[in-house]
């Protein structure tokens, strides 16, 4: 159910998913091929990002099959948005949450997660999300009984959220007209789950993954897989047709274009996704329907101002 409907809900958890599909005409105009570009407005989720979907599914599935019990604390590594989602849903359902984040995640995400009562543990700012993954595994290995470790990079409930939600919603919202889906990869959950659902509907739908062009990049939340710990849920055979290797600047420029021309203040991963959709649109046919994802809002990424710097390391 969408925040745009008048439907009633009994928990914030029920507000996850059902996001609007938004047409990006100013981006279509740049391609000039007559292809349509649409984007799922994932910032409309109650936690503010696409990660609400995966976190909700991982927690609900674990509660249902007994992996998550009241004596356990949920712990996972995250570059931020998954942490906000775990924190929000944990607070709503009475689940304690601890997170391992690289020390250089944005101040906004540190403050938001802590507001929900979440405990934060910081890993090295030089080692990125892979450093956080290694640290959470060490912590869990020391006392496995204490923790529920969903492991968003390996948990089938992560892509399942997108198989049941994002993919099915895109088919419904485009009346089955979707011809292309493109999304950047972090845990790879969005691409794997949505892609699987779309391929089942029609194997001719082109499913394209986007990755940063270089190991050192500024598309926060996305992974350059050749230089990273590859997530266990990344199983592209039969689902992913192609990869776009995107320079950071192309994604950042698109974020600026979207705020100026569409009034959409989105993060750099969303900019990267739309930049990738534009690349596809340039070689697409009139009437093709390209769908991507606006992962979150740009206000998650404000740099601290001089008088409010509170670096942790």
């Amino acid at each position: 159910m969408s925040l745009h409907t008048n439907a009633r809900a009994t928990s914030v958890v029920d507000l996850v998913g059902g996001t609007p599909l938004l047409r990006l005409r100013s981006v279509e105009a740049r391609a000039g091929t007559g292809a349509e570009i649409w984007a799922k407005a994932e910032f409309d989720n109650p936690g503010g990002s696409v990660k609400d979907r995966a976190a909700r599914q991982m927690i609900l599935d674990a509660l249902a099959d007994g992996r998550l019990t009241p004596d356990k604390t949920l712990i996972d590594s995250t570059s931020g948005n998954t942490g906000v989602a775990y924190s929000m849903i944990g607070a709503a359902l009475g689940v304690k949450v601890a997170l391992v984040m690289p020390a250089n995640v944005s101040a906004a995400r540190k403050h938001i997660t802590q507001a929900y009562g979440t405990e934060l543990i910081f890993s090295s700012e030089l080692e990125g999300s892979d450093g956080a993954i290694r640290m959470v595994k060490r912590i869990v290995d020391e006392d496995p009984a204490r923790w529920f470790y969903p492991d968003q990079y390996a948990n089938p409930s992560n892509p399942r959220a997108h198989y049941l939600g994002t993919g099915a919603e895109i088919l419904e919202q485009t009346d089955g007209r979707v011809t292309h889906f493109v999304a950047g990869v972090g845990t790879t959950g969005t691409l794997m789950g949505t892609g699987r659902r779309l391929k089942e509907h029609d194997p001719r739908i082109r499913v394209v993954g986007m990755q940063p062009e270089d190991a050192l990049h500024g598309l926060e939340g996305l992974k350059h897989l050749p230089s990273s710990i590859v997530p266990a849920i990344w199983q592209p055979d039969g689902i992913v047709d192609d990869t776009i290797w995107l320079p950071t600047d192309e994604g950042w420029d698109m974020s600026e274009f979207l705020i100026e021309h569409e009034g959409l203040f989105v993060g750099h991963s969303a900019g990267g996704n739309v930049a990738s959709a534009l690349r596809l649109a340039r070689t697409a046919k009139a009437g093709d329907v390209i769908v991507t994802v606006l992962c979150d809002r740009g206000d998650r990424y404000f740099k601290p101002l001089r008088w409010e710097r509170t670096y942790v390391w």
């Binding site: 995250t78 690289p102 030089l126 999300s129 892979d130 939340g221 992974k223 750099h268």
Partner: peptide, 10 residues
Amino acid sequence: LSIVPAIAGG
């Protein structure tokens, strides 16, 4: 001098 990139992934 620390060289700190943006954060990748998840």
